[in-house]
């Protein structure tokens, strides 16, 4: 599998106290552990099992993920921003890999 590539969409700026929408996507096959290969052997599970979003070090939103989540997991959620700062996004793979992305927002 190619290295999972995260993508994030959020506004560049907001007013203080505004509730913004954040959208995230990451390329990942999300192998469910339910499929068999051509020889009938079960293909081992390998999914992203945890996603989280922090803002200036405090958790905004997180999600525990099961194999029923689709390939290329998509999460859309909200955040109330009170000051300028940095969002940090983290995806945790079954194999221990951690994929990260960061985005800044300016609050006026």
């Amino acid at each position: 599998m190619a290295t999972p590539k995260p993508r994030v969409k959020l506004p560049k700026s907001a007013s203080a106290g505004e509730v913004i929408t954040i959208k995230t996507l990451i390329s990942h096959t999300m192998e469910s552990g339910q499929r068999k290969d051509s020889e009938g052997k079960v293909i081992p599970r390998q999914i992203i099992n945890k996603f989280s979003c922090e803002f200036n070090g405090a958790t905004v939103f997180s999600c525990d993920i099961e194999p029923a989540i689709s390939a290329n997991p998509y999460f859309e959620f909200s955040a109330r921003v009170k000051e300028s700062g940095t969002f940090k996004f983290t995806w945790v793979d079954d194999d221990g890999s951690v994929y990260e992305d960061e985005q800044t927002i300016e609050v006026k």
């Binding site: 905004v60 998509y74 109330r80």
Partner: peptide, 19 residues
């Protein structure tokens, strides 16, 4: 899946895609 929200979420709303 289980979504975890906080006061910083601002709204208890989330979207994902499932099998």
């Amino acid at each position: 899946a289980t979504f975890h929200f906080s006061e910083a979420s601002g709204a208890a709303a989330a979207t994902t895609r499932m099998r």
